[in-house]
Design a protein around this nucleic acid. Structure first.
Lengths: 169, 169
DNA sequence: ATCGATGCAAACGATTTGCAAACGT
DNA sequence: ACGTTTGCAAATCGTTTGCATCGAT
């Protein structure tokens, strides 16, 4: 997402929604933010520019930002929801079958977010990572009817070729 | 954790807490459960054994189970909290500073849980894994007053020695 | 002029807590 | 007997919504 602001305007137009001063104030405050933001923070930021905004509008606007794929919610606990700018990350991690050597790529935003926040808490800034899970696929475990995800996709095991399946989890 | 029930009794005694029928009913219902459980589920399960229990008691008991390390909460969204039996895993993952080469060990039950459920969804059974985060510590990023967690703990960077700090995150 | 957006306050659902009574030690 | 635990209801928290009004197109 090279230009989130443009993406936002496009989204509004596509949906037949309107550009209002309070929405702009909230969106600007959000995009200006780095890391996690609480809605209360957005409210006070937005109020500096447009003092009449209410909390409900912030909720409504952030929900739109989520739908537009610009904001991502992180739930840390009951009543502890923070939002962050959804970066166009394309990480993929690996699931490797010990038996057939097959590799499945998978993605998990939740894991990405957790590892980032874990690192941040320890004072670290994560640049890249490696996350590999080793285990056995259904076939290798002898499960009736189970299949190796790689084989199931029509590939031969241990081929060393790129993974045949991508799972979003 | 070979015997959760024993661990639970020990925990109660250590803390000077009491064993009550409703607690037992709730704990049994929880330990009998597999996967994720909602508190409402625990309530109705527990009520089959001890009909007078209230929801507040379930909340209070599950909080104790968390403190005892027996239960783990999963927050799926606002108002969508499920609990699962915490397995006694002792994984530790690594946070590696690109600048000083220092390694911090960290643990995150949440990440463990997520990666396992991700794998499970793809038909895998995870036996072991490697999870390494590469990045920069505060000192390496030139943050005023920031320190490399390794250096802060009194170790020399790039020593190749075991990590000096463990972070539970 | 039309139709969506806003602010406010009330509604809502999940979680917590105050309190007097009941229970385990 | 003592201090903890319980159930209940009320309180609290974050979040959503109804509605009359306002604003953007």
């Amino acid at each position: 997402m090279p230009d989130p602001k443009r993406h936002w305007r496009d989204y509004l137009e596509r949906k037949g929604l309107k550009t209002t001063q309070q929405r702009e104030a909230i969106v600007d405050a959000f995009l200006r933010s780095s890391g996690h933001v609480a809605l209360e923070d957005l409210l006070s930021s937005a109020r500096r520019k447009y003092p009449r905004v209410g909390l409900a509008t912030v909720y409504r606007t952030v929900k739109l930002l989520e739908e537009a794929g610009i904001a991502a919610a992180r739930h840390f606990g009951p009543g502890q929801t923070l939002y962050e700018v959804a970066e166009g990350r394309a990480h993929h991690d690996h699931l490797i079958c010990d038996a057939c050597g097959f590799i499945i790529e998978f993605e998990s935003d939740e894991i990405e977010q957790l590892q980032d926040s874990a690192a941040r808490r320890l004072g670290f800034n994560v640049l890249r990572h490696r996350h590999e899970l080793f285990g056995l696929c259904e076939r290798a475990r002898g499960i009736a009817g189970g299949s190796c995800p790689g084989l199931a996709a029509g590939r031969q095991p241990n081929s060393g070729a790129p993974p045949s399946r991508r799972g979003r989890v």
